[in-house]
Amino acid sequence: MALDELLDEHEQGEKVRGWLKDNALGLIGGLVLGLALIGGGKWWTQRAHQERVATGETYDRMVEAVDAGDLDKAKTEAAALAGTKYAALAALDLAKAQLEADDRDAAIATLRGATSEDPGLAAVIRQRLARLLVDAGQGEDALKLLDGVDDPSSIETRGDARYALGRMDEARKDYQEALRKLDAAAPQRQLLELKLTQTGGTPETTGTQS
């Protein structure tokens, strides 16, 4: 090999060693940071899994307390689920148990504090609370809760609130609207038609398919 080629290789080697020397701390720091990010990601995933398991166990304890009739414990466990995806389900379960224990006011309070980002669950909470409010003679509060609803069950409940308040014409319109939106084969259609009749309305012979 020619002398000038050996010198070039030597110079290149010196440059590489010099660059490594000057950047050693940065390389080590980058390696440490990369390992930390990998480890941190695993830790976060494991922690999230553990939290999901713990939340599920809390919900199970709440259900067991409801089944055992220990509503005080059930209420405590339900409160521990606040802010989780189980919160709405826990509130519905607890409110049902409270109502079965003839504590309507407690059931109303439970549902008033319940929220859900899921539209379906939110609608169920709203309907059940509204029905309890109507039963408790708080029809106006129920109407506020049902303002702007567009599903058949909620519209029917709004009609119930207006019926309880003696506003027959408005109740009749609600029942008619609910029937128009309800499937002709829906099992609750017969009761809804009876409510319409009680307000002076006449059910149509056939329903509109949804």
Rank of each mutant, 00 (worst) to 15 (best):
M1E: 08
D4G: 00
D8P: 06
D8E: 15
E9D: 05
Q12W: 04
G13D: 02
V16M: 03
G18T: 03
W19L: 13
L20P: 08
L20A: 12
K21F: 11
K21M: 09
D22M: 14
N23H: 10
A24S: 15
G26Y: 13
L27P: 01
L27W: 12
G29C: 12
L31S: 03
V32A: 11
V32I: 14
L33C: 04
L33H: 00
L35F: 15
G40W: 04
W44S: 04
T45H: 08
Q46D: 15
H49A: 07
A54R: 01
A54T: 08
T55A: 09
T58D: 02
Y59V: 04
E64N: 14
E64G: 14
A65V: 01
A65H: 03
V66E: 11
D67A: 15
A68S: 14
A68R: 14
D70W: 02
D72A: 14
A78H: 06
A78K: 07
A79K: 11
A82T: 06
G83W: 12
T84M: 06
Y86F: 05
A87R: 10
A88D: 03
A90M: 13
L92I: 06
L94C: 08
A95S: 13
A97S: 10
L99I: 07
L99H: 11
D103N: 14
R104D: 01
D105N: 03
D105V: 00
A106L: 05
A107C: 04
A109F: 00
T110N: 01
G113L: 00
T115W: 10
E117F: 04
D118M: 07
P119S: 07
L121T: 15
L121Q: 12
I125V: 12
I125K: 04
R126D: 00
Q127D: 08
R128V: 02
L132I: 05
L132W: 07
V134E: 05
V134Q: 02
D135G: 08
D135A: 08
Q138A: 12
Q138R: 11
G139E: 00
E140V: 12
D141L: 00
A142G: 15
L143D: 15
L145S: 09
L145H: 11
L146C: 06
D147W: 07
V149D: 09
D150R: 01
I155E: 14
E156A: 14
R158L: 01
G159Q: 09
D160K: 01
A161Y: 04
A161K: 03
R162C: 08
Y163K: 00
A164L: 05
G166F: 09
M168G: 02
D169C: 09
D169S: 12
A171T: 03
A171V: 05
R172C: 13
R172K: 15
Q176Y: 13
R180E: 10
L182E: 12
D183H: 12
A184E: 11
A186E: 13
P187T: 02
Q188D: 15
Q190E: 08
Q190L: 09
E193I: 02
T197E: 14
Q198R: 15
Q198H: 13
Q198C: 10
T199A: 06
T199W: 10
G200Y: 11
P203G: 10
T206V: 05
T208N: 13
